[in-house]
């Protein structure tokens, strides 16, 4: 297999693009996909401050590395979940990555916040992954707002987005389908959120990290076993294998033709937001979901 651009031996095979690339040409292609995503969705402009949420995994570290190489004003954010045998290794990977690149790093320690995930898992009756996601999104937004960042960037890739779209579609969840996408504008106390890797698969981010020599934390979360998202990704992989390009067509078609219909359907149905009286974060309830979890852990609910 030869590189589509320079005819050297290929290292990365991309049937969805009817292409294969050598290492240097793949890295140029990858940068082009990120630039195309940022431009198509008007995610951020020159000089805007970006806070990149870093888990230590391949996607978030690839994102931060690429934004740095594209001369963006980026800082890192790590939320330490306090999961024994996992969080300390992820934190070390993120700290090493940031130190090597002179990247500013903000760390939020959930144990210090009274929200260590093992304790949350013991006390809540819902699947811990959804609660953990809610807590992380809360602190992503709070850290970005308090730090004066214009944009919060996450490493969600095409596989993540297509799997989430499939999950939302299987439930015909109009509210989620009306605002799923690679860009959420700033609104009522929420900072702008961007997913600059939405055009790239996790195979591509893994190739990028290997070719850039980025050391990633690749052990799965010990609490994620049996997560439904993994099975949705498998279904979409089967589809992609039989029909290359269908994953991107599914997601891109939704953004262009599906989401506008759901936006119109949901217009005016959303609940108004007001600051949580306990922490100040925007919420549609009496108190925000994270403060409700804090109350539960304190035995007040």
């Amino acid at each position: 297999m030869k590189c589509k651009s320079c005819r050297e031996p290929a290292m990365v095979d991309l049937p969805s693009h009817n292409a294969a690339f050598c290492g240097p040409c793949f890295l140029r292609y990858f940068s082009g996909q990120v630039r195309a995503a940022v431009k198509a969705q008007a995610m951020f402009g020159p000089g805007e401050r970006i806070l990149a949420a870093l888990s230590g995994g391949k996607d978030s570290l690839a994102l931060a590395n690429e934004l740095l190489e594209q001369d963006c004003r980026v800082s890192g954010l790590f939320v330490d979940l306090a999961i024994p045998g996992s969080s300390d290794r992820a934190r070390a990977a993120v700290e090493d990555f940031c130190r090597a690149r002179g990247l500013d790093l903000v760390v939020v320690d959930l144990a210090a916040e009274g929200l260590a995930i093992p304790e949350v898992k013991r006390r809540v009756r819902r699947p811990v992954c959804s609660v953990c996601g809610k807590i992380k999104r809360h602190f992503f937004n709070r850290a970005a707002a308090r730090g004066g960042f214009e944009v919060l960037a996450t490493g969600h890739n095409l596989d993540d987005e297509a799997a989430r779209l499939l999950a939302n579609t299987l439930r015909w969840d109009g509210a989620y389908l009306s605002d799923q996408g690679p860009l959420l504008p700033a609104e009522d106390g929420f900072v702008r959120k961007a997913k600059p890797l939405y055009r790239l698969t996790e195979y591509e981010t893994a190739c990028y990290c290997f070719l850039k020599g980025i050391e990633v934390h690749d052990a799965p979360c010990p609490y994620s076993r049996g997560a439904t998202f993994t099975s949705y990704k498998r279904l979409l992989d089967d589809l992609e294998h039989n029909s290359p390009g269908s994953k991107f067509a599914f997601y891109d078609g939704f953004l262009n033709r599906g989401r506008p219909a759901f936006e119109a359907q949901q217009a005016g149905l959303g609940q108004g937001l007001s600051p949580c009286p306990e922490c100040g974060s925007p919420t549609s309830g009496d108190i925000c979901g994270v403060c409700r979890i804090r109350r539960l852990l304190r035995g007040e609910d």
Binding site: M1, M11, D13, G57, T205, C207, L211, C221
Partner: peptide, 22 residues
């Protein structure tokens, strides 16, 4: 990184790294 058509040889030492995050 090896594409699927690449030849393998006796004595090769390979790493096969899963890319699906869980």
């Amino acid at each position: 990184l090896l594409t699927r058509d690449r030849r393998l040889y006796a004595g090769d030492e390979l790493t096969v790294r899963r890319v699906t995050s869980a």
